[in-house]
Design a protein around this nucleic acid. Structure first.
Lengths: 133, 133
DNA sequence: GTGGCTGCAAAATGTTTGCACGGAT
DNA sequence: ATCCGTGCAAACATTTTGCAGCCAC
């Protein structure tokens, strides 16, 4: 009647939330899907995408966009930047806290009203350096 | 015999190169495709992608990856950053010259060997501000 | 004439959507 | 009994690839 949908707590939704919140990595939707299947073999990938999108929209989890490959999902709440390993594709946090001054610098000579920014670093992770890949 | 392929100059290749090099915008492969069709109605999108990739690999043009939507292609040679309009999707250069110090900062607390970075700004372009979109 | 380049279609990749049914409330 | 969320398949968007024929050299 009032147009507000009442959300339901399903097993799938609970599983997906827990998997992301207990993850130290930044899993892709596909990686989450594989984990959900361990406890709920009939899940559909569509459900994983739908739930991840809902959680990200509500701000419970954070969507990390990388330039190549699928989006990742992250439990970390504060804004920070990521490095992607160009060998194995792993995505990891950097020690660089978000710097909003960059937006002021970028606005010079550019008539946009800048509302946000993202930095994606590329590199080689410790494992891949050791393995000489 | 020597394994080096001799490149051929086709009409399609010439058109595609000229379109990107004469473009002030940062056209997507699809936008280039539409322009090529004006002079060569039978082109295949596959050809456009193949030629754009070849040109980017050879360094004649530059591939601009944005977080949402298709890659753009750019004639500018020196490294710089881009803003994407969140309303109309337009991609434009910022007045921010490339800052490689960011990579040193990011390496703190992160054991990656950092080899590159990209910044993508998001904002609203002058046209969309005026149109109050 | 050779073989690199093309056009076409199909595949690959990542994600969204339409729909009927089943389950949480 | 509602009606939201699910599973399935199909659609979608972007890009790549296999292949037979064509055309620049």
């Amino acid at each position: 009647m009032n147009g507000v949908k009442k959300e339901r707590n399903t097993y799938q939704k609970t599983l997906i939330r827990e998997i992301v919140l207990n993850s130290c990595t930044h899993p892709s939707a596909d990686a989450v899907y594989d984990k959900v299947k361990e406890n709920c073999p009939n899940v559909s990938k569509a459900t994983v995408y739908r739930v991840l999108n809902d959680l990200a929209d509500k701000g419970e989890i954070f969507r990390v966009k990388v330039l190549d490959g699928p989006d990742r999902f992250d439990k970390t709440l504060h804004k920070h930047y990521h490095v992607k390993c160009s060998v194995c594709g792993k995505v990891v946090d950097t020690g660089y806290a978000c710097n909003d001054d960059l937006e002021k610098i970028a606005e010079k000579d550019c008539k946009f009203k800048i509302t946000g920014h993202e930095i994606i670093f590329e590199g080689i992770c410790p494992d891949c350096i050791v393995n000489n890949n």
